[in-house]
Design a protein around this nucleic acid. Structure first.
Lengths: 237, 237
DNA sequence: CTGGATAATACTGTATCCATAATTATGAAT
DNA sequence: ATTCATAATTATGGATACAGTATTATCCAG
């Protein structure tokens, strides 16, 4: 989890983030880039020197990363970059599929205006989704994986926002953050880009039909499909 | 999340927990007991003095608690105990219901031996569940809420273990930890004990019939039922 | 008596320092 | 030469000290 609190994110947005938070961010970047490789020992003094800071804020940052699961703290033995096994993926993806499926379901309900209280959301929201999807189509056609990846993230984020459940979003974000440890990008697999696009279309179609259950199912399959692609990628990189 | 890493819990069980971890635990206890009330400011120096330690490990502990969502860190303004609103409960319980429902589903599948690879788990596991349930029945009859509460926790834990998905368990544990901020115990509500018991019976019955979907549904309803009880408790305490 | 500016105070954030435990290197004995 | 014991080194965990900023108190003006 982020240092910002999950639900009640008390962000005085103009307040400069504390040093330990900046350090945590820098470390995340390095870990994701495998510049700090999985299993690698983290040299506190070395990094502190390199960052030009003392060990104190660095160690606080490590506590945060440990809570996120990006590093493992071994008492009296130091800190190591977390490594996630095949088994972890097998356990994580189904859960992620469950959560994201629920997001799709809720988002669809919200769009359909079936939710009590809130009332029907403007269809502007749907066009926003459609807009992002159009981007996906374009980037896929151009085989621009990086932009596709970015747009894909925006798509899922937009959906989460639509679903309007902060806790649900939080758990998904936490999970995805952890998953980024693999760095392997299943989109690079041969037919995966096209396949992913097709799955997105199916999700969007279900939402358009205001079929929440179908949207959930399609999203669920979409995530598991990502898992399968990743598995293939790991056997033949 | 806990300071122990979610998946790869590196616990050299005989290693004494670091001081910051012990401190975190003491703070959790105080927070749950509302000895540190929601919204209250946390006096670092004061607590450090009281615990007979320096501010360093205390601050590290606070970072951990912040990651768990139990406290909120405001840059340059200090640390405050998190307060969760009615809306948070409305967002959290459905997610918890989803997750616990999945646990029931997976556990049932495992019991039924439908899972590939692992093979049918010994029916000893089911009798263990049944045993815990018998305890629940007894404590309910005796109106021993505390023991009922404890046995209830064991029941859910046993189920999680059966389901065998560590990530799923982790998310549930995180969520429950956060929920404990309310401290309000829905079991204290008038007919809730009996009702909860009935729901447990339904869950167990579904599992016995090896009906995973039904088990999931019953568990789902069980959790949401807990939410409803809590809501009632908050209007008329 | 109220409002605002300035000074005093207190607390957070960071750096430095020290003690202790773990690891590695060294040496002696079998 | 191998193995065990012991010493040296290094890193972690914790305490203390210091700087900078937010908050509170005080005082003066209107």
């Amino acid at each position: 989890m982020n240092a910002r609190h999950p639900v009640d994110a008390a962000k005085d947005s103009l307040a400069a983030p504390a040093l330990y938070e900046q350090v945590a961010e820098r470390l995340r970047t390095r870990i994701y880039a495998h510049e700090l490789a999985p299993g690698a020992w983290i040299d506190e003094q070395g990094l502190a020197d390199e960052f030009g800071i003392s060990r104190t804020p660095l160690r606080e940052a490590l506590k945060v990363l440990a809570a996120e699961g990006l590093v493992v703290l071994k008492p009296r033995r130091g800190c190591y970059v977390a490594a996630l096994a095949e088994r972890d993926l097998d356990e994580i993806f189904p859960v992620l599929a469950l959560l994201e499926g629920r997001v799709a379901e809720e988002a669809t309900r919200r769009l359909a205006g079936l939710e009590a209280g809130v009332g029907p959301l403007a269809s502007a929201d749907f066009s926003r989704l459609a807009e992002i999807h159009a981007e996906l189509e374009r980037h896929a056609a151009a085989h621009d994986i990086d932009r596709f990846f970015a747009a894909n993230q925006r798509f899922h984020s937009a959906l989460q926002e639509l679903a309007g459940n902060r806790w649900l979003s939080q758990l998904i974000d936490d999970t995805r953050k952890f998953l980024k440890l693999t760095r392997r990008d299943s989109l690079r697999l041969d037919g995966r880009l096209k396949q992913s696009l097709a799955e997105h279309r199916a999700i969007l179609a279900a939402m358009k039909k205001q079929d929440a259950a179908a949207a959930a199912l399609q999203m669920h399959n979409h995530i598991l499909s990502g898992r399968a692609a990743l598995a293939k990628l790991l056997t033949q990189p």
